Simulated assay, not measured.
Amino acid sequence: MFYMQLQEIPRVKTISREDFVSRYVKPQKPVVIEELTRDWGAYDKWHLDYINRIAGDRMVPLYDDRPVTHEDGFNEPHARMRMHDYIRLLESEPTNYRIFLYNLMKEVPSLQEDFQWPDIGLRLVKQLPMLFFGGENSKVFMHFDIDYSNILHFHFHGRKQCVILPPDQTKYMYKIPHALISREDIDFDHPDYEKWPALKKARGYIANLEHGQMLYMPEGYWHYMKYVTPGFSMSLRSFPRNPANLVKAAYNVLIMRHYDNFMRKRKGQAWIDYKNEQAVVRTHRELGMEI
């Protein structure tokens, strides 16, 4: 259960291109569209047994919820296994292993025949349909995306809880310097407000997605995802419309992540420890909460 100040994300069953752009994209507000996928082949087919049948032999990268160390490369997987072994694991017991940002569409092109590129007023990047898988109660740490994209996040097979916060809440999030994440030792299900008092001021949104539903996440939104049941999701992306966010995205991709990798190699775990400390120091200092 969450104790931050969260409101339910608005929901519509369907929406026109014009209304989606005027009511949500331009003001940068989230929305859940419940029936956007009803006429897709994916709506009937995209369950774990189907993925197992057509992609079971593929080797897939796996991630868990261990804290970042200086030995980890940027988005470097923690393990690998065949998809059919991973799906068997998902269906047999809770697991922290997740598939993250995996271009299964490239590996299994027939999947592209199961969905349609929505004519919804965003210029979607056709090269980047990414899939994400997770087991019961597995969690995706609180973060925002490196490229500040507008994201259409579709969920399949089961239920998923999504907590998102707009960029103006960054000052409360204990953001790690030179990174895209909050402190990894924060339990966002049950925040310790004595240890993390700034979180009491954070305001965001929450939604529970079911099979076939889509969440629109605007540019630079923080998000924390929890798989209530085993399942998987697909994200379609549109580069930021805001010029300032384009600049931030370029900085993240071209400078920030390379600098961070350099410092990890140079200073080792001391660099990670320093950043974790600074996340607290800088957050409390900016809010006048020196403790």
Rank of each mutant, 00 (worst) to 15 (best):
F115K: 08
Q112G: 15
S149E: 15
L131T: 04
K126F: 09
P129C: 00
F115H: 07
S110M: 15
G135T: 02
K126G: 02
L128K: 05
D119K: 12
Q112A: 13
Y148I: 03
K139Q: 15
H143C: 02
G134Y: 08
Q116K: 10
F133V: 06
L124M: 05
S138K: 14
G121Y: 08
F141Y: 14
Y148L: 03
G134I: 04
N137T: 09
I120R: 15
G134F: 03
L111Q: 12
L124Y: 08
M130I: 12
M130C: 01
V125H: 07
I146H: 15
W117Y: 14
D119Q: 11
P109N: 05
S110V: 12
W117P: 04
E136P: 05
L124K: 04
P129R: 06
L111R: 14
M130Q: 07
V125T: 12
D147V: 08
S110P: 10
L122M: 10
K139R: 12
M130T: 08
G121K: 06
F141Q: 15
R123S: 01
M142P: 09
D145R: 11
M142D: 10
P109Q: 13
G134P: 11
P129D: 06
D145F: 03
F115T: 01
S149M: 12
F133P: 11
I120E: 12
P109A: 07
R123C: 00
S110L: 15
M142G: 04
M142L: 12
H143F: 06
D114L: 01
L111C: 12
L131N: 04
S138V: 11
L131R: 06
I146D: 15
H143P: 05
S110C: 13
G121W: 11
I120F: 09
S149F: 14
D145N: 14
S149Q: 13
D147S: 07
R123M: 05
G121P: 07
L122A: 04
L124D: 01
F132Q: 07
L131K: 06
D114C: 01
P109Y: 12
E136S: 01
R123Y: 10
E136H: 01
W117V: 08
L128M: 13
G121I: 02
D114M: 02
F144V: 01
Y148K: 12
K139C: 08
F141T: 12
D119I: 00
Y148F: 06
Q127I: 00
H143D: 09
S110N: 09
K126D: 09
D145M: 10
G134D: 03
R123L: 06
S110Y: 11
S138Y: 03
I120P: 05
F141E: 11
M130E: 09
R123G: 00
G135D: 05
I120D: 08
L128W: 11
D119G: 04
L124S: 01
E136N: 01
L111K: 14
E136I: 00
N137L: 09
P129Y: 07
D114Q: 09
Y148M: 10
Q116H: 13
Q112W: 15
E113I: 00
G134N: 11
F115M: 06
D114R: 10
F133N: 11
G121T: 03
Y148V: 04
L131Q: 05
I120K: 13
